[in-house]
């Protein structure tokens, strides 16, 4: 129980800080909306083409939004040595992983909750279906599982902004493919049962990488 109390204390601390500056959510949101705008502008005139490319655009956008948001995740922890303060506190390192992950999940979901309707609005593609909303949620969990680990790792390197995408993007390709596939199938009106395999892949990815990241997180933050 104290585990989750402290996880939530970390998330609450990030939330308070974010509410005051809106640094992460606002910058990631503006970026996401701009990318959506540019893509829908480029393909939007052709309804049929738009429906075909919509899943790819949507997930490319969310993947980049993830990179941008994770690259900020450990910045406040490094600024006045706060991460060292956390490490000197009587909590296991995994609490830090869970707490930072939960904050990132929260911020990503807020961005997506605004970006998804915006995408539907600009592209005239009905992406607000329950299938796509569900796949957005589970894929974001996978992004956060990997992204939080690599965010902590890249924060300890000399070129955070460069290292993070190089690490993050290849690893998440399987769930990116799966999410695109689910969105495609959902848009062509396939029943839930045909999406099941893809949800299974994403679910397996989420579980595996939550577990692996949890296990190796210690090595990433301790000198």
């Amino acid at each position: 129980m104290t585990f989750w109390n402290k996880v939530i204390a970390i998330t609450w601390k990030d939330w308070l800080s974010e509410m005051r500056t809106r640094e992460v959510v606002s910058s990631v949101l503006v970026f996401t909306l701009l990318v959506i705008l540019i893509f829908t502008l480029a393909f939007g005139a052709d309804r049929e083409l738009m429906t075909t490319v919509a899943p790819g655009i949507l997930w490319a956008t969310f993947a980049f939004a993830g990179v941008l948001s994770f690259s900020r995740s450990f910045v406040p922890e490094k600024e006045h040595g706060c991460l060292e303060g956390l490490m000197a506190a009587p909590i296991s390192r995994e609490v830090i992983y869970a707490g930072k992950g939960l904050s990132s999940l929260l911020f990503m979901l807020i961005v997506e909750a605004i970006a998804l309707p915006a995408f539907a609005f600009f592209s005239n593609v009905p992406v607000l279906s329950p299938q796509i909303i569900l796949v957005t949620f589970v894929t974001t969990v996978g992004f956060v599982a990997v992204g939080t680990l690599f965010s902590a790792l890249s924060a300890n390197t000399r070129a955070r902004e460069m290292v993070l995408p190089v690490l993050f993007l290849p690893i998440v390709i399987p769930i990116l493919i799966s999410a695109i596939k689910v969105s495609e199938l959902a848009l062509t009106g396939e029943p839930w049962s045909n999406l099941f395999t893809w949800f299974q892949i994403i679910g397996a990815f989420d579980l595996v990488f939550l577990a692996v990241s949890y296990l190796v997180f210690d090595f990433v933050i301790v000198e």
Partner: peptide, 21 residues
């Protein structure tokens, strides 16, 4: 280094660390 979060008030920082401890 202070180990304090710049965007939080001093009270919020101390409150956070007292939860951790």
């Amino acid at each position: 280094q202070t180990f304090l979060y710049g965007n939080l008030t001093a009270y919020e920082n101390l409150e956070f660390y007292s939860r951790m401890f």
